[in-house]
Amino acid sequence: MTVNGTEKGVPAQAGAAAPEAVPEAGTATEAAEPAAARAAAEAAAPDPETARWSGPARWAVPALATAVGLLMVWGALTVQAPPNATRPGPGFFPGVIGGLLLVSAVCLVVTNLRGRATGAANALEWFEARPVLIVLAGLVAHIALLEFLGWLAAGALLFWAVAFAFGARAYLRDAVVALSVSAAVQVGFSLGLGLSLPGGILELVL
């Protein structure tokens, strides 16, 4: 199944409007028909904000909420308030946030367990890990190498890696585009805004 885009609720809406997209007999225009067919096809994709979770992945968000909640409560209990601090002290807000996060985690678990039968589910089977890991690797490499290689090279590397993850396979052309974008940013920023980006080893060579 497909999960629709960030433009939340779009296909769901299109699906809801589908019956109206088929007008009364006789007035059906050529234009309306493909639209209606498309809307019907899209009705299969649920609004990701309301689709329930299924599979082992459904415990991810409750786990995240619990972890952050426990961290907040721990911080609230261990924070060192200066002796002259007014009450409520610095630990009060984190404590409340942590408590509410734990409550919401419990509610999320309950929702998962009750798992209403209607509606499509989001089990994350559409998730493609490989390209995500490539983008992440590109980011890590960029962060690690930025001050050593300088913006020009590190930026170009990042651009190239992300483009590769998105399916660009014209390696040479990609590299040329990456270098020119990176160079344009560096020149534009140093000249136009007076912002200095790290030069890295290129500075030593030149």
């Binding site: 939340k8 609720g9 609004d47 904000e49 309301t50 968000v61 995240l64 909420a65 952050v68 909640g69 961290l71 907040m72 911080g75 924070v79 060192q80 308030a81 200066p82 601090a85 007014t86 002290g89 610095p90 807000f93 984190p94 946030i97 942590g98 509410l100 996060l101 919401s104 985690a105 509610c107 999320l108 929702t111």
Partner: peptide, 28 residues
């Protein structure tokens, strides 16, 4: 948000990010 519970969870995570750092009132 589409779901109240998810909206609140998101809000709380944002609030948690917001408390990181020196507390402006007490300096802790």
């Amino acid at each position: 948000s589409g779901s109240v519970l998810r909206g609140l969870t998101s809000l709380l995570i944002g609030l948690a990010i917001g408390v990181v750092g020196i507390d402006g009132q007490s300096g802790a």
